[in-house]
Design a protein around this nucleic acid. Structure first.
Lengths: 313, 313
DNA sequence: TAATTTCGATCAATAATATCGATTATGGAG
DNA sequence: CTCCATAATCGATATTATTGATCGAAATTA
């Protein structure tokens, strides 16, 4: 035995407080009273703290005891979690679920999804990656994440199984003071050429091709929030998910640009849930995949975005 | 033994991960290697989860093991807290420190104080009461709190030991639209008589005398925040701690009233730290009392209030 | 008041199990 | 291939938890 203190002692302590007496605790735990008495004595001697005042009929917690029982319960709660986690794993639940999400995927739908997961699998450890664009898919391919929610790269390996769950409207915007913001007529490529386009880019493949790149002069951003700051600051124009700039457009801080059809390569980004076909998803991953394939959840996802009629405006 | 799982097993698990091998963990814990091996086997069998992959030279955690080690460490951290708390109590530290604070005492100074307490006594349990005015002193007298920070009642029992730590400027205010707000000349009692005064009151002694009560028509509030809402709503006038209404006066939402000297009973409330002379304060309480008597801390307290020159304005 | 029940402490006997020490098997480095 | 460190295994032993019986004190009941 490494230490004096044992879990059994703490469990017994908690039971005594719950039941009101040593004997009753013994009955509940299936031990004789003397065993309880002995355990309490050991616990008290382990730390040199008297836990119960036995002078009256029923044992009463001392001031020290009152505080330590609470701490004992915290210990037991953590132990309980350990055992539930271990039990779930023994029953075949994957120990850890890693999810990678592209930065433009709206948060509310994901939160809703994970709240459901937490209810179905309370003790599973979840890791959520949100990195630069393209990173989610790369994590699926490399195996460092099980489930990805991202834009599907048309050149993705065949082992990547994808299922479309919705789409995000993209709008070209510029800040209030920006020269492009005023022009009402459809903007032609030559109008855009003289202005800097702010582009969201894959941090690892910054030299590669990007979609929706129109201007010859491009600033590349890995962080979509930072890019929004630059857009608001009037540093250039760029495509943004409509749900992220909706408020800014309504407030007049950003203006939607009316591009001519020649410029609009992508009016919306398709969002898919992806996983690696070659590795079997665990029970929790399976649950997530099933959930995201339900039409109901597609509505939830769409609801977290502005209505499409709104986006056209 | 009530359960299969023991603290020793978890401790051993953590040590193995720290040291990198069963043998090394045994050396650190003063056990032979076979004891470690046995303990791990028991832990694995208790939950039916394999924690280590032993196929290579050094044991490697399985995916399940990685997650469970983290949980084991959480358990051990709670146990450690239990032991430190118990140890502190055995060394004479009071298990619980209860502090009662009057609602008008500014929070920043108290936060600063308790941050220091936490550093000096990391594991003590603190309960902080903030109730109606007068409640703090009552808790000291009744013994349900050890230290009070409050306005001293001149009729307090002699067993209450008090030490003045500062004062809070009180200003009479009324909202923008209130009839009194416009008047520049010093207001006489007859000017006030026609208007409702909003008063902070002791919830248990609402019929008793209150200080600074000038108007014959009085609305009594227990919650100072609620009273501020009513002041802002223009329901009447009243005395407020200057630091709480400073912003509102600057923003023009509240106006400071110019009362004639006949009305101003209390321009400031003295704040004292009090405790019951008859019960010896514990080490942590003693620390607080000493700290609050230092001139340095009086400055901290004063700093959390507007400067007095400001208050006169 | 007296009898009865319930409770916690104590102690010796016993059951359970943790630890030791020796041994064997195995993987990795040189 | 050899050597070293390591983990698993096993019987023996030491340690510890648990039991069951008994005692005195305190509350409950008649």
């Amino acid at each position: 035995m490494l230490t004096q203190l044992t879990l059994d002692q703490l469990r017994i302590l908690a039971s005594i407080v719950d039941e009101g007496s040593f004997s009753a605790a013994g009955r509940r735990l299936g031990r004789v009273q003397s065993a309880i008495s002995h355990a309490v004595r050991n616990l008290e001697e382990a730390n040199g703290v008297t836990l119960f005042d036995r002078s009256s009929r029923r044992p009463e917690l001392t001031a020290e005891g009152r505080v330590l029982v609470e701490q004992a319960r915290r210990v037991l709660a953590q132990v309980d979690t350990y055992e539930r986690m271990a039990g779930a794993m023994a029953a075949g639940l994957e120990p850890q679920l890693t999810i990678a999400i592209d930065p433009f995927v709206p948060t509310p739908a994901v939160i809703d999804l994970l709240a459901g997961l937490r209810q179905a699998f309370p003790d599973i450890a979840v890791t959520l990656y949100t990195e630069g664009i393209g990173a989610a898919e790369r994590r699926i391919v490399s195996g460092s994440a099980i489930i990805g929610i991202c834009a599907l790269n048309p050149f993705a390996p065949v082992t990547v199984q994808a299922f479309r769950i919705g789409s995000i409207d993209m709008v070209p915007v510029a800040a209030k003071g920006h020269p492009l913001a005023g022009k009402a007529a459809p903007l032609e490529p030559e109008d855009l050429a003289e202005h800097v386009q702010l582009v969201l880019t894959d941090p690892l493949e910054s030299t590669g091709p990007n979609f929706n790149v129109v201007s010859p002069t491009v600033w590349r951003f890995v962080d979509i929030g930072r890019r929004l700051d630059f857009l608001l600051g009037g540093f250039g124009w760029g495509f943004m998910p409509h749900y992220l700039v909706r408020e800014h457009i309504a407030a007049g801080r950003l203006f939607k640009l009316a591009l001519s059809d020649a410029n609009v390569l992508l009016g919306a980004i398709d969002v898919s849930v992806i996983h690696d076909r070659s590795r079997t998803p665990g029970r929790a991953a399976q649950w997530l995949l099933t959930k995201m394939r339900e039409p109901d959840w597609h509505e939830t996802f769409a609801y977290s975005l502005p209505k499409s009629a709104d986006a056209k405006l």
